[in-house]
Design a protein around this nucleic acid. Sequence first.
DNA 1: CTGAAAGCGCTTACAG
DNA 2: CTGAAAGCGCTTACAG
Lengths: 355, 355
Amino acid sequence: MGRLVGVSSAAVSAVINGAQSQVRIAEATRQRILEAAAKLHYRPNAAAQALARRKMNSVGVTATLSHGFNLYAMEILSGIINAATRQGQNTSVFTVVDWIDGVRQLRTFCDGRVDGMILLGPDIPTTLIETLPDHVPFVALHPNSQLPGVCAVEIDEEDGACQAVRRLIALGHRRIMHVSGRRGGIAAERRIAGWMRAHDEAGISWEPDLLVAGAFTIGEGRRALSNWLDQARGEFPTAVFGGNDAIAIGCMSLLLDRGVRIPQDVSMLGFDDTICAQTTSPQLATVRQPLYDMAVRAVDLLLDQIATGETIATRMLQPAVPPVVFPVELVERASIGPARNWSIDVAQGSESGGG
Amino acid sequence: MGRLVGVSSAAVSAVINGAQSQVRIAEATRQRILEAAAKLHYRPNAAAQALARRKMNSVGVTATLSHGFNLYAMEILSGIINAATRQGQNTSVFTVVDWIDGVRQLRTFCDGRVDGMILLGPDIPTTLIETLPDHVPFVALHPNSQLPGVCAVEIDEEDGACQAVRRLIALGHRRIMHVSGRRGGIAAERRIAGWMRAHDEAGISWEPDLLVAGAFTIGEGRRALSNWLDQARGEFPTAVFGGNDAIAIGCMSLLLDRGVRIPQDVSMLGFDDTICAQTTSPQLATVRQPLYDMAVRAVDLLLDQIATGETIATRMLQPAVPPVVFPVELVERASIGPARNWSIDVAQGSESGGG
DNA sequence: CTGAAAGCGCTTACAG
DNA sequence: CTGAAAGCGCTTACAG
């Protein structure tokens, strides 16, 4: 572009980048350059700029796609993109099949395309860290585990579950089923712990039989409850608390199919407040994670590290930073109500397959 | 990296990039380089590579965020990211508040960060094209309008709506309400046209009173139906066809609140088959768009153009290419059934606010 | 206060 | 068949 105005590219650079350059350009030259730039729709080439500045202005996000389309991840992603865009950064998204395999690819993704990386998704294995590229800063969203050198943004899962069950107890419920995520997963276990704690606090003993292991999908939620019913263990609980919204929705669809009224016969409660919690009838009460705010915070933390030149390597030398923990909030919707004081029959009904 | 092995960077480049280089390297040197690269976890810097090759290996996606979080856009995005990742491209996502304002930003996004851009979202104004940067190829997903020089990937919206209504007619429905998206929007109008056409084909005259203008959200769908009911126009239709899933879900929640049974009293039908269509009870029958396949196709079309060096500018010189139109498919779920032959009363019930 | 030079880390076309 | 040079389009530190 310099050639066209008969001026050096350095002069163009100084003018386009504004005042932060120490270089002063004669006002006449300046005007000439600005005019030409406007006319030609001139934009500095991003690759050249990145090479010279050693900065891509690009935030990386890596997510697992193990469960196919993931509403929860998508809501966070949407927050990240917004936050990054607002700060003049662009967002490069990468997906990996699982974290074990993903580590190798993470090296490739951090080849200068991005200035830092946000790891998205629960249950990132701690062993991951050893092979993470260390020339770049990382932030992990919902890792549910301490990755040395990596900033973590989490929620208080146990407290969320505890709040939920506490509310049900206040509504008179004494037999509260919890259909959990896959056992062993940290998120699932913490939510189970919250379910137990709320019982303990209230001096109510939780029944092991009402702790049902499922997995974080609609189909698995429905299946877990269906299996439980097949073993016909007497009176159905007055409330079902799903390990996440999908589980609750799966359970809810099964109960509705069998003529159970919600919330009159059974109260239903989810966890996450994904958009689907608003599409059920009745709408699903749930524990809200501030997914958007968390995403924004993750971007801020990453950009801070980028600005100060921190990387995993430099952070390993400093004292470990505790995770940023966001509060959760119970969202009351029509799916919960007072505990029933009559019997219901849920056992009958042939299974027609979950969603 | 060359320095460390005592070898030129050109030699390293030739070895790392494999056989596509004409340059031959002595086997011994080759091994030495490969070893060192493995040991140092060497990866060519993406910015430098991009500058030298004039190719970023990055696919851009720009979407509007006018309606906040958008499930439909997110499902497509997820497909794009997958398809791109599989082809070794990374995906850079940008959001704009609206298309009018977005055009200016599109210039900035196309500054070399991406090799091409996918425009995501219905109702992209035709006037947009005049100010689009023309040194890069574009693909538009669901533009619902012809943008000269831009490849379009669409569905046959009218046919989808027509299929849906045809099925309802086959089930004996004669009074089929359509709660549409905002009037004037091309997607909304085409779906309306399909609703009309199915009636015409069957020799049934559609009642203007049953064409209700709404907008593509749950809240607006519910509100539109609620307003209609407030004017108490006699017997309620036997089926409601929403302009999209969100509208159908909004209408469904209102009807369920008022004690209407679905599908016994009223059949419900949506459009899009977003994930939420599976979370309602009963599950929502809907017109499925192959969102994932469309996303994959859009990526392929864009990469083709990138490979052959096509841009908007070069495409303008060629004859216009018709849009790629994907077929749609009716997904039958529990929310539709035979038309009722009894009266129902929907009018009562105080409105408690939509989701 | 201004302009030309060096360098970012690669690749590709060109000499040896 | 191999190696050093030029260049991608910027920015930044350095002479004039």
